[in-house]
């Protein structure tokens, strides 16, 4: 009897200690998780504000991804803010304690210029990406050279095409950097096709509505049947136009030159619906913007212009591009 009681005492003693240990371990883990959740480690030397249009375009998502990669590499913290007429973020930037800002100035040029001057007076370094501002204030610029962009468009439209080129170029408010330098783009096109018979019949602009291009493409194809090449400068516009082209059964009759490297765009390149697409490498834009701003903060100066390049994706180099996007684009 005595031994049985002793064994019971030992067993329940062990069970008690085990349960106590598990309970203690659980509360310890919870405390640890709570501490980790509430306390963060210092991660950055600089706090940069990135001001981009508030939309879901892949272009800006890639810019953000590139910027984040650079921030991690260069020990910077980024906070992303919308810029537009309906938000005050950009106007409060000068008070928000940023060590530097990266701006895609998608607001009225005059307003943007004023605010940038204010920010500049507050001693905050600025880097612009894909801007269409005048060159009065020589802030560092990271992005595409629109003349090169035009040249690539011309090069692609003349490839495998002996026919006279009847071209329509569709700009977009969704790509203000290109829109603001459309003359430069067209110069590039002409420069690439200088010995070819080219006729730029129509220049059109879509608004910020992603579906705007669908209606516009219908109008072009119905009202101007002589057009055999349409160039888009925005990804959403390209996707909308592809739908119209398929609906009207004009695949092969009208060459579409798209914009961007989204998966649906590349799929259509592979299917031959698109003659090709223009790639502007937004990841590199974001990356280089942070890199330049960091250099500006650290050393007080930086490159005034970083050209991130323009590429062409066609059916021929699609596989290479899909394996390592950017590798064989240029």
């Amino acid at each position: 009897m005595k031994n049985i009681v002793k064994i019971i005492a030992i067993i329940f003693g062990i069970l008690f200690i085990t349960a106590l240990a598990f309970s203690a371990l659980t509360i310890f883990n919870l405390s640890k998780a709570s501490r980790e959740q509430t306390a963060s480690e210092e991660i950055a030397a600089y706090h940069f504000g990135v001001f981009l249009p508030q939309n879901t375009y892949l272009f800006f998502q890639d810019v953000i991804a590139g910027a984040r990669a650079a921030a991690e590499e260069f020990d910077c913290a980024l906070s992303f803010h919308p810029i537009g007429n309906d938000t005050k973020d950009f106007f409060m930037a000068k008070y928000a304690g940023f060590d530097g800002i990266i701006v895609y100035p998608s607001i009225a040029e005059q307003v943007a210029q004023f605010e940038l001057d204010e920010i500049n007076r507050a001693g905050i370094p600025i880097v612009l990406i894909e801007h269409g501002l005048s060159d009065k204030s020589p802030w560092p610029f990271v992005g595409t050279n629109n003349f090169d962009l035009g040249k690539k468009i011309g090069e692609l439209s003349g490839r495998n095409n002996d026919q006279p080129i009847q071209m329509a170029v569709v700009y977009s408010e969704k790509s203000p950097g290109i829109l603001s330098e459309k003359e430069l783009v067209e110069m590039g096109i002409r420069s690439a096709l200088n010995d070819r018979n080219i006729k730029l019949l129509t220049v059109m602009v879509t608004n910020l509505n992603p579906l705007d291009a669908e209606n516009l493409t219908y109008q072009i194809l119905r009202n101007e049947p002589e057009i055999n090449t349409i160039v888009f400068t925005d990804t959403n516009d390209t996707l909308a136009a592809i739908q119209v082209l398929v609906d009207l059964n004009l695949v092969g009759s009208v060459r579409i030159i798209g914009f961007g490297t989204d998966e649906p765009i590349l799929d259509n390149v592979g299917k031959g619906i698109l003659a090709g697409t223009i790639a502007v490498f937004p990841v590199e834009i974001g990356y280089n913007a942070v890199k330049v701003l960091k250099s500006l903060c650290d050393e007080g100066y930086s490159e005034s212009y970083v050209d991130t390049g323009v590429g062409i994706i066609t059916k021929e180099n699609l596989d290479t591009v899909q394996k390592g996007l950017g590798g064989g684009v240029k």
């Binding site: 005595k2 009681v5 002793k6 019971i8 005492a9 329940f12 003693g13 069970l15 008690f16 349960a19 106590l20 598990f22 309970s23 659980t26 509360i27 883990n29 919870l30």
Partner: peptide, 27 residues
């Protein structure tokens, strides 16, 4: 969720402690 786990363990702690104490006293 963790509190629920803790409630379970603590219930066991109380039960085992009680039985342990009783058996210890009996011993």
């Amino acid at each position: 969720n963790v509190s629920r786990q803790l409630q379970f363990w603590n219930l066991l702690v109380i039960i085992f402690a009680f039985i342990w104490a009783i058996s210890w006293m009996m011993y």
